[in-house]
Design a binder for these strands. Sequence first.
DNA 1: CCTTGACCTAAAGTGAGCTTTAGAAATTAC
DNA 2: GTAATTTCTAAAGCTCACTTTAGGTCAAGG
Lengths: 144, 144
Amino acid sequence: MALGTELSIGQVAQRTGVAVSALRYYETQGLLQANRNAGGQRRFARATLRRISFIIAAQKFGFSIARIRELFVNLPENRTPNETDWSKIALEFRAELDAKIASLEKLRDNLDGCIGCGCLSMKKCALYNADDKVAAHGAGAQLL
Amino acid sequence: MALGTELSIGQVAQRTGVAVSALRYYETQGLLQANRNAGGQRRFARATLRRISFIIAAQKFGFSIARIRELFVNLPENRTPNETDWSKIALEFRAELDAKIASLEKLRDNLDGCIGCGCLSMKKCALYNADDKVAAHGAGAQLL
DNA sequence: CCTTGACCTAAAGTGAGCTTTAGAAATTAC
DNA sequence: GTAATTTCTAAAGCTCACTTTAGGTCAAGG
């Protein structure tokens, strides 16, 4: 495969560190798109690497695939996203990040005041009554 | 059930907001212990409320059940944990929280420098090469 | 006493995010 | 040209943290 052209799924996997199976999964979830060559194999545009880079980062922050898909609807489908396209997403993303970090810090500070405070009532406990905005709306692990 | 005595699973659920099924699950996972009354029903010591409060908070921070169990091994089994017992756990917990928050902040700052930066190479991208310590070691959602 | 609601166990089901498997076709390397 | 590697699809499997279900037992109120 010549340089400057599209990439096979294996090449994308190697460059991003994301498993081939995960890339195929992302495609089924609408996070990635791929052309097909004559033999039916996926060929990814180089701009896809950037999308994947974003997916990796967003997942580290705990964003679900559904939420990432929502952010991606702002990216153009018929041309390679430019800096302005990404900046719009970054703005929205950044705001959510700040909110999440602030929420975690608040929870941490509540914890400081509560652990060892001797309170036995869940009703009065600052920890228990901490900002629920950090709580998951579904099941499963969070943050790490 | 008189005041000052042990609590039924329904009472614990009501006070903590944790589902009865989740409480039973936590018991199977070794996060909680319960005595049984003559009829075989669970009776929770009041100190259990504090353990549950901690579980709720730790989960908001993304700690897995396995990790919470590890933190709990430092709590005494044969007596009610006192402030000193909890403080030891809080110290360890707090350190991990700070690390996680710092890691998220670093990732956010890397994002600021990377989104829209025009770099196309995953090898050079600060975002892609951000601190991997935040990455999950298993499957599933994180942080929220 | 008897009904109603709370509680019991064990096992199966759920949803997110993938991975693994199986069997076949395409591509690359020699 | 042929062997090895990569890729393909569809479906099943896996982990985590629970919930739901099914079929009972226990406890509190009237």
